[in-house]
């Protein structure tokens, strides 16, 4: 006893259901399609059937690869190349991000000492104590970036 529908019931099929029935190998459905759409439908039906088989084959391969990937994840040494690739990609993204958005350079703080009133020990003491203040608020240490002299004598006298 055939499980396929008879020609009469095929008349009520939508095109989608008809194609599905043909893909499943329903000879009655194929004959009905030829009767309904003419012989030009045959190559289309053949293509659909071939593609359907190709898709099935690809899906089987994909499932097989998925299983291998799961096995690879379980054995971490198989993941090493993937990890390296991910790290490289991360570095590339980070570098690009840094290059695109450079961090603003925070300004140094200038300290001025009247040279006629301070000696080197006093100046070093003050910077050291400022460095301590910086540490108290969570900083690491202060560094001397630059030192120079400002001549404040009037132009007329120099």
């Amino acid at each position: 006893m055939s499980t396929f529908p008879d020609t009469q019931s095929l008349e009520h099929y939508s095109d989608k259901d008809l194609i599905l029935a043909i893909k499943q190998g329903d000879k009655a459905a194929q004959d009905y399609a030829v009767k309904k759409y003419g012989h030009k439908i045959l190559p289309i039906l053949q293509t659909l059937t071939t593609r359907s088989r190709s898709l099935e084959s690809l899906l089987k391969e994909l499932f097989s690869l998925s299983r291998k990937l799961i096995t690879g994840i379980n054995n971490s040494h198989h993941l090493k190349p993937i990890t390296i690739l991910l790290k490289a990609a991360d570095i590339m993204i980070t570098t690009r991000k840094q290059n695109s958005y450079p961090a603003p350079v925070p300004a140094a703080i200038s300290l001025y000492f009247d040279a006629s009133q301070f000696d080197s020990t006093e100046i070093a003491d003050i910077i050291h104590l400022l460095s301590d203040t910086y540490r108290i608020i969570g900083g690491d240490a202060l560094v001397i970036k630059k030192m120079d002299y400002l001549d404040l004598s009037p132009v007329s006298r120099s």
Binding site: P106, A108, I109, S110, L111, Y112, F113, D114, A115, S116, F118, I123, I127, L130, S131, Y134, G139, D140, A141, L142, V143, I144, K145, K146, M147, D148, Y149, L150, D151, L152, S153, R157, S158
Partner: peptide, 11 residues
């Protein structure tokens, strides 16, 4: 001739 020592500090 007044002169000032300028020292720039940063973290």
């Amino acid at each position: 001739e007044p002169k000032f020592v300028r020292i720039e500090i940063e973290g």
